[in-house]
Simulated assay, not measured.
Amino acid sequence: MKNTMEYNGYVGSVELSEEDGIFFGKVLGIRSLISYEGENYKELRDDFHTAVDDYLEMCKEEHIEPEKAYKGSFNIRISPELHKRLAIYAIEHQTTLNSYVAETLEKAVK
């Protein structure tokens, strides 16, 4: 089962409140809070689309740049020894550390 959905470049969560009998979610990967809900999948999806569209329209009206989810950079904390080994490996294989890590992560999620 997939617990996310995508629309217009944004990823939203899909959750269920058994107590209230509704589905709900929020847009992931940005600081702004964009939430939505529905009594079934179609209502949830439609409210997600409307919430994203409303957010983009509000940004346009207020002349602000909409936040982009998953910009392509993130920090990772590893041991100095692993950092050193990865850097040496990348140099030995005539690539950058960034390229090597990106390729490795790409393989991991395929």
Score class of each variant (00 low, 15 high):
50 T>M: 15
27 V>R: 03
44 L>A: 00
39 E>G: 12
18 E>G: 11
107 K>Q: 13
107 K>F: 10
90 A>T: 01
74 F>Y: 06
53 D>I: 07
75 N>C: 07
24 F>D: 02
6 E>D: 07
69 A>N: 04
19 E>Q: 11
6 E>Q: 08
9 G>C: 03
88 I>H: 08
98 N>G: 05
77 R>N: 06
39 E>W: 10
38 G>Q: 03
6 E>F: 05
83 H>I: 10
47 D>Q: 04
80 P>N: 02
3 N>T: 14
62 E>D: 14
20 D>R: 13
108 A>F: 11
103 E>P: 08
1 M>F: 06
68 K>S: 09
10 Y>P: 00
103 E>T: 12
37 E>G: 06
11 V>Q: 02
41 Y>P: 06
48 F>W: 03
75 N>R: 14
91 I>R: 15
4 T>P: 00
73 S>H: 15
84 K>M: 08
91 I>W: 10
90 A>P: 00
99 S>G: 13
32 S>L: 07
20 D>N: 15
79 S>N: 11
34 I>R: 00
74 F>S: 10
42 K>R: 14
70 Y>D: 03
67 E>W: 04
86 L>C: 09
58 M>V: 14
45 R>C: 12
27 V>I: 06
50 T>L: 15
97 L>F: 05
80 P>C: 01
101 V>H: 06
64 I>M: 05
88 I>D: 08
19 E>T: 12
76 I>R: 09
23 F>Q: 04
30 I>S: 03
92 E>A: 10
26 K>L: 14
61 E>T: 13
40 N>R: 04
106 E>G: 09
41 Y>Q: 08
98 N>W: 04
77 R>G: 02
74 F>M: 09
70 Y>R: 05
77 R>V: 07
35 S>W: 08
52 V>P: 01
79 S>P: 05
87 A>N: 11
6 E>Y: 05
71 K>V: 13
2 K>E: 03
102 A>M: 12
28 L>M: 12
63 H>G: 09
30 I>M: 05
81 E>M: 09
68 K>A: 08
104 T>C: 05
98 N>Q: 08
31 R>Q: 15
20 D>K: 15
53 D>L: 05
2 K>M: 05
32 S>G: 05
97 L>H: 03
84 K>G: 09
47 D>E: 02
32 S>F: 07
89 Y>G: 06
61 E>F: 11
31 R>M: 12
66 P>L: 02
52 V>N: 01
19 E>N: 11
72 G>T: 02
43 E>S: 08
108 A>T: 10
4 T>H: 06
32 S>Q: 14
74 F>Q: 09
17 S>G: 08
40 N>P: 02
85 R>F: 07
69 A>L: 06
84 K>Q: 12
73 S>I: 15
14 V>R: 00
48 F>G: 00
69 A>V: 05
96 T>Y: 02
22 I>S: 04
68 K>I: 11
67 E>M: 05
91 I>A: 14
35 S>K: 11
48 F>E: 00
65 E>H: 10
95 T>H: 01
110 K>M: 14
96 T>N: 03
53 D>Y: 06
5 M>H: 03
44 L>P: 00
56 L>S: 03
65 E>L: 09
69 A>K: 04
33 L>D: 13
108 A>S: 14
97 L>V: 06
109 V>G: 01
91 I>E: 15
15 E>L: 09
27 V>D: 02
50 T>P: 07
56 L>Y: 03
36 Y>P: 01
28 L>I: 13
107 K>T: 08
59 C>A: 01
75 N>E: 09
